[in-house]
């Protein structure tokens, strides 16, 4: 009877209700975990801490027996406690390493006895949404780069708006491109490698070399990768001739590109004089700011 009484008196782990906001989240999203301890043993224990765990490791606050200040939950009143976290920061790991689930429990101060059931909740586990790659008409690879890196700009014809009939049917895709840059003296500059329209204008030569138009510059021709995908690959600092002294129109040495604009188009632009229609050209909607 005595043993039975002891067994009945032994505290159980609390099993409180909790919510996560937003309910669906990725490893990169900021989330808030809120727990309602009403009716549980933990409700009388004072300060509540969170302890999270994952395949990526135990995270920043991994000493179960310590009352780590970074893992303190915020008292919201009425037995409710909350904790804000972003999983990539909390576990100091990438979304790929964190995976698709993480676990956590709520605990009181462990000072009176580490790991005692009365001082903690049961384990909870929840699902992490995967980061989904969204295909788009335009894409740049890699996502982040410097002006001295290899950069590939993609256009997927399959995803073009149906109104772009000329571009969708074109077998040769070119780009019109220009850059904004900062010179070493702090002043701004603008440079385009080839003129937009045929024929070459002799009066509009302030910003381009005056050597070619887009249609005559094979360096501006995108590579057909198959299945409707076209790619144009450059090293920006070399392609835009930074530091090339053969023309005063080239950006001086030490210039930093602040933005590169890439405009996929048909070889001859329908926007130019002597051509018909405008369904094949795209606006300057592919501006890539540099870091």
């Amino acid at each position: 009877m005595i043993l039975l009484s002891i067994g009945l008196a032994k505290a159980q782990k609390s099993n409180p209700k909790y919510t996560i906001s937003p309910a669906k989240f990725t490893a990169e999203d900021a989330i808030t975990i809120t727990v309602d301890l009403t009716g549980t043993t933990l409700a009388t224990k004072g300060q509540i801490y969170i302890y999270a765990f994952n395949q990526a490791g135990p995270g920043l606050y991994n000493d179960f027996c310590a009352d780590q200040s970074g893992a303190k939950m915020t008292n919201e009143g009425s037995n409710k406690w909350s904790f804000k976290l972003t999983l990539t920061n909390y576990f100091n790991a990438t979304p790929a390493k964190i995976g698709t689930t993480f676990g956590f429990l709520f605990k009181a101060s462990q000072a009176s006895g580490c790991g005692q059931d009365a001082n903690q909740s049961v384990d909870f586990s929840t699902t992490i949404e995967s980061l989904v790659f969204s295909p788009s008409v335009f894409r740049v690879f890699p996502n982040k780069f410097t002006q001295d890196d290899i950069v590939t700009f993609y256009m997927d014809k399959n995803l073009l708006d149906p109104s772009k009939t000329a571009l969708k049917s074109a077998t040769e895709i070119y780009v019109f491109t220009d850059i904004d840059y900062i010179k070493p003296d702090g002043t701004g500059g603008y440079f385009q490698i080839s003129q937009f329209c045929e024929p070459v204008s002799t009066t509009d030569g302030n910003y381009y070399t005056g050597q070619t138009t887009v249609a005559d510059n094979l360096a501006l021709k995108a590579k057909d990768e198959g299945n409707g995908l076209f790619a144009w690959t450059i090293v920006p600092s070399k392609f835009f001739k930074i530091g090339d002294t053969t023309s005063p129109k080239f950006p001086p040495a030490g210039s930093k590109i602040t933005k590169i604009k890439v405009h996929f188009r048909t070889r001859l632009s329908p926007y130019c004089p002597g051509t018909v229609g405008d369904a094949g050209s795209l606006g300057d909607n592919f501006g890539i700011p540099f870091q």
Binding site: T94, S130, F141, T152
Partner: peptide
């Protein structure tokens, strides 16, 4: 091969994680 570490970290499809440069240069 060029590797986009951001795409790798996010577990994006392999086609957008890496690019073979041998055929381009």
């Amino acid at each position: 091969t060029q590797i986009d570490n951001d795409a790798v970290n996010k577990n994006f499809p392999l086609a957008v994680q890496k690019l073979d440069l041998t055929s381009r240069f």
